[in-house]
């Protein structure tokens, strides 16, 4: 177990900056989620920590010790691949024991550790199966078991759940978290699924075009995204921008958002209140209903404000009294408008 630190990590592929001076600390024993759109550099960062990507510049420290010159096989890491990468010519038990064999751990010790880890991932009786005889979720568990049996200093997960269907993915999220807690290993995982990142991580980092845009505990980042990109990438956000006045933010159509201190604010769809009658609070905006989307308990309303789409989410019953289309009022509680910076490209 160890903390991981990357300093000023930079990697370019031709004209493309896959990593642009990324500095980040991964806490010992923590569960860190790396998020970002495709091409943002999150996988490159993970592979640089693993040692598959040699950075142009910067340092990688595992447990305080620089490892840029240490080859992958000597870094004492565990890794779970998107495709699982189970060795097709070996049984489940042999797959799991591979890392032990390489370390010349033999005999009773080897068997005991294989058994323990297979029990941990609840595959105790499948040791003699071949990978092609396993379901997706079972393969995922074998990949986990194989990665942790050597007691690595850090566990790296590359989109570990993306090959599973939705129901199984949710189940495996719980499993992943349980196993990580029981082993207590520093875990870094890459995902493009923001919900997964929010659910699992103690801390998240958001990358964009090779730069670390924002990092912190998920709730903090969600509630205070600080910039428009993060606000939109993590969850959904309605952005309002205009000019700053003494009383608040003046939108181009003359409406005022009182209390705002930045030229742009973000409002989460679940915080947008829609009413047919004029609200009493200080925030009052007009918009037109375009579409109502029914999705079971929750409903989504797509509105239009001077050509800008606005989204509102609430229990479907709350939208019941609204007209199917026509002008309505928007409002939100004060404090729901998050000040954000316009995202630099």
């Amino acid at each position: 177990m160890a903390e991981v630190r990357v300093e000023n990590l930079t990697k370019t592929y031709g004209p493309l900056k896959a990593l642009d001076a990324v500095t980040l600390d991964f806490r010992d024993g923590g569960f860190f989620g790396l998020l970002g759109p495709s091409g943002s550099g999150k996988t490159t960062l993970l592979r640089a920590i693993a040692g598959f990507v040699i950075p142009d510049d910067g340092r990688v420290l595992i447990g305080g010790e620089p490892v840029e010159r240490v080859p992958v096989e000597a870094r004492e890491i565990g890794m779970v691949f998107q495709s699982y990468a189970l060795f097709p010519n070996m049984t489940v038990a042999d797959n799991v024991a591979f890392g032990l064999d390489v370390r010349r751990i033999r005999g009773a010790e080897r068997d005991r550790r294989v058994k323990d880890v297979l029990d941990l991932v609840q595959l105790g009786d499948l040791g003699q199966r071949k990978p092609h005889q396993l379901s997706g979720g079972q393969k995922q568990r074998v990949a986990m078991a194989r990665a942790i049996v050597t007691r690595p200093r850090v566990l790296l997960l590359d989109e570990p759940l993306s090959a599973l269907d939705k129901a199984l993915r949710v189940e495996m999220q719980v499993e992943l978290k349980r196993i990580q807690r029981e082993v207590g290993i520093t875990t870094i995982f890459v995902t493009h699924d923001q919900e997964e990142a929010l659910t699992l991580s103690d801390e998240i980092g958001i990358l964009r075009n090779g730069r670390l845009v924002r990092h912190g505990p998920p709730r903090e980042v969600y509630n205070n995204p600080r910039d428009a990109f993060t606000a939109r990438f993590l969850g959904e956000a309605n952005l309002f921008s205009g000019s700053l006045e003494a009383g608040g933010l003046r939108l181009p159509d003359g409406a005022l958002i009182p209390g705002a201190t930045t030229a742009m604010v973000a409002v989460r769809p679940e915080n947008v209140q829609v009413s047919a009658s004029e609200p009493s609070g200080p925030i009052r905006l007009r918009a037109e209903i375009r579409r109502r989307i029914f999705a079971g308990a929750m409903g989504t309303l797509i509105l239009d404000r001077h050509g800008e789409p606005i989204k509102a989410i609430a229990r479907d019953s709350e939208f019941a009294e609204l007209p199917d289309n026509g002008r309505v009022w928007l409002s939100w509680r004060e404090g729901s408008a998050i000040p954000v910076e316009n995202a630099p490209n």
Binding site: G51, E73, M79, A85, V102, T150
Partner: peptide
């Protein structure tokens, strides 16, 4: 698949081990 070789390396295997096993 190259990821099989990467997986073996992440588990600590050297080239000869990867070749043999």
């Amino acid at each position: 698949d190259d990821s099989l070789i990467e997986a073996a390396r992440s588990l600590g295997a050297k080239r000869l081990t990867i070749l043999r096993r």
